[in-house]
Amino acid sequence: MYKIELKNISKVFENKRVLKGINLIVNEGEMLSLLGPSGCGKTTTLKIIAGLFSPDCGDILFNGKSIVNIPVEKRGAVIVFQDYLLFPHMTVEENIAFGLKMAKIKKPKRRVKVREMIDLVKLDGCEKKYPSELSGGQKQRVAIARALAIEPKVLLLDEPFSNLDTRLRESMRIFVCDIQKKLGITTILVTHDKEEALLTSHRVAVILDGEIKQIGTPAEVYEKPSSPLVADFFGEKNYLEGEIIKGFFVCKMGKFKTGFDKYPRVMAMIRPEEIELTDSEEGSGFWGRILSKQYAGDKIYYKLSANDIQLKCMANSKNMFEANQRVWLKIDFEKTIFFKAEKS
C-alpha cells in the first residue's frame, strides 16, 4: 500500500506552462479522480507520476520517499491508457504475462499469476486470442489485468472508459471500482467526465488550466465549489450579482433572506435545477417570463428572463409551461452559494 505525494510539480512544454505547481496527496488505497477538461494537464500529471516525463521542478514521493530519479520501469506506477494499447503480436495470456516476464519471474509462478488475473477480470476462454479478436470491453479488461499482474504500487487510469459505449462504460466502471476495492490499490483516475469522477472516486481533484482548483469528496466539490470556475465545470449555472445587507441578499430582483454575510458584494450561484417554476407566488422568488423550452424526456430545459437577466432552469416534466408564459421562479436563497464578486 502506497501513499503518493506530489509537491509543487511544474512542467513546461514548448513555452506553454502545462502544469503550474501541482500539490496533491493520494492516501493509501484511495481512489482519486483528476477531473478537468481536455488539455488541462491531467494526462501530463499521470505521465509524470509514472516517469514517462520528468517534472521541471517539484518532487514525487511514494510512501515518503522521493522517486523522481527512479527510471520508469522500476517505479511501479502502471498507466492503463485510453486506447488500451494491447501488444498486437501477443495473445491475451502473453500480454498479461509481459510485465511479469520483464520482472524475470519464473514461468510456473508466472502461469499461476496470469491464471489468477484472467479469473479476476473474467476472461476465461480468451487466453489464446489476439487483441484484434477481442471486443472493446474485453480489451479493457486485458489492459487492466496486465497492469494489475505486476502488483503495481499505484494504478493510473487515463480516461479508461471513454472509448466504450454508454452501457459498457457503466458496467466497466462498476467492475473497476470493485477490483480497486478488493485489492485496495492506490488509484488515480483521469477523466473529463464529471459523472464518472463523482461516481467512482473517494475524492475528486478538479484541475483547470494546469492548477488544482479544488480537492474534496464528490459531494464537497459538487455542492460547495470553491470558485465559479469549478462550479461551471460541473454544469452551467446562473449567477446573480448583488449585495449582502444585514443578512439579506439585495439584487435587481428584490430582497431575499439569507444566512450569509461573509462578503458585502457577492455573486449568488443558482443551479438550473434549484429553480422551481410555479403559476402563482409561492415562497421566496420573483416573476419571470419563459423565453424558450427544450424537451428532453425526463426533464425540460427552460430559458427564462426576469428583469432583463437571462436564467436557465431545468425542471421535471410534471408541469409544462409554454413560451411567453409568466411564471414564478421559486428560489431558496438560504441554501444558495455566494461567491465574492469579481471586480468588474
Binding site: L52, E73, I79, F98, A147, I150
Partner: peptide, 21 residues
C-alpha cells in the same frame, strides 16, 4: 510512441522494449 510507453510502464527497459515491442 505509445506502445513503447506502455511497455516501459510495465517494467521493460529501453532495450527490452525495442526488442519485444
Amino acid at each position: 510512441e505509445s506502445m513503447e510507453m506502455q511497455a516501459r510502464v510495465l517494467g521493460a527497459s529501453p532495450l527490452q522494449t525495442f526488442i519485444k515491442i
